[in-house]
Design a protein around this nucleic acid. Structure first.
Lengths: 223, 223
DNA sequence: CGTGTAATTGAGGATGATCAACCAAGGTGG
DNA sequence: CCACCTTGGTTGATCATCCTCAATTACACG
């Protein structure tokens, strides 16, 4: 059996964990094929259908999730380096969750998502079930907001837009919501009061009810 | 073959994806066993050795990562709901990355990490390789900082402490670092200048060199 | 040696943090 | 059943912090 290799040290296909599972050393075909891209390349865009799943062989990639259109690409929220996969959300949902841009010259391995799904093996295996669970959970929640993503009021409005469907969210303790939105509980409270004044919400100490999604959306986008 | 069930709707073991993989319906033993906890229970603490991996059957759990000791438990950065796993980082590292607290009354299934590792199946399967890759990547990066985690200066100092080992990090574009730290590039620039003035760094436009980790740490903890 | 982009610096003012007091809602025990 | 206490949430006033906008500088690249 091939020696397992750390995810951060390999370079060649034979050393890549994907390659060794596929038996590259023994001459089998790895599902992933190499591609190089210069620094600055936009690899994919949020909302695009996922056709390819990527593996970073060399270099660094920046992920951003456009909080709102007007700010162009949105602020970066994570960096992925060699050894990481990109676009895995495609295994459990149709479109990319983020936009990805190469920070350095990169070497990527890419494979069609259908090939990867096949390569994963039995849908009944423990690892596969866990993997899908993780991917679903990860797809469900957005990264923490910061005040680089807009004013406190904008963030609150945006968050309410996204999560008003699930009303279990609307009963979370204020201190927790404030944490997710990157502000103090007092600030959250004031924002909710402001939105209530503008007739977008009905707020009590323990519940939030959205009365005008339109108003929320226009505030969220910085109107 | 058992019908696969959405990760967000089941309740009984037979409907749980873990349960069905294990063949609970056919009388086999699921590796996870039920436990109930009242709202507010502290489930585990960051840094503790991972003995148990959890699956949330019902309820919601808050994750926080103490940025610094003095602020007590730190601000929450994510919420996990039924259908999510907790403590999966234990499959690739010895200790918990977060502290977890029950937000509601919860029903959890727990299993020793060694059992789960076994349950995952072959270490050569595609799904298993992908799973470990995801877990490693996820363990490597910290959630985005917000100004609920301390002042801009504190966040910069803390980030430099953590990532000074890996100097590929120190050459990331400023605009990206600013995004990760939840501030504007201008603010980051000023913070770096301030830290440089205090003799903790040597900064050029394209590189950062830590000259006094002690100083950084004392600033990071709000000295 | 120009040009364009990213980083830095400056000044200003809005925004959000802080600290404090107050209020609502349970839970507990007398 | 009611006074009491605790906890979490809201409101107010103040001020430091950080954002904004602008001009300037460094650096890479053609």
């Amino acid at each position: 059996m091939a020696q397992r290799v750390s995810f951060t040290e390999f370079l060649s296909c034979g050393e890549c964990p994907v390659g060794s599972v596929s038996g590259c050393a023994k001459g089998s075909r790895c599902p992933l094929v190499d591609r190089r891209r210069p620094a600055g390349t936009l690899l994919y865009v949020v909302g695009e259908p996922v056709e390819t799943v990527w593996f970073i062989k060399y270099g660094a990639v920046m992920l951003s999730r456009a909080a709102d259109d007007r700010r162009g690409e949105g602020t970066p929220w994570a960096v992925r380096r060699r050894g990481s996969f990109l676009g895995l959300e495609g295994l459990v949902r149709p479109t990319y969750l983020d936009s990805a841009r190469a920070l350095t010259d990169v070497t990527l391995c890419g494979a069609p998502r259908t090939d990867v799904l096949q390569w994963l093996g039995s849908t009944d295996g423990g690892a596969r079930v866990l993997l899908e669970g993780m991917l679903l959970a990860q797809s469900a929640d957005t990264p923490r907001r910061t005040n680089a993503d807009g004013s406190a009021l904008e963030r609150v409005a945006a968050w309410l837009c996204e999560s008003s469907a699930d009303n279990s969210v609307l009963t979370l303790p204020r201190r927790v919501v404030a944490g997710l939105l990157g502000m103090q509980p007092e600030t959250l409270s004031r924002c909710l009061a402001a939105l209530s004044d503008q007739g977008a919400l009905r707020v009590t100490r323990r519940s939030i009810e959205v009365t005008s999604r339109d108003k929320l959306e226009s505030i969220a986008t910085g109107a």
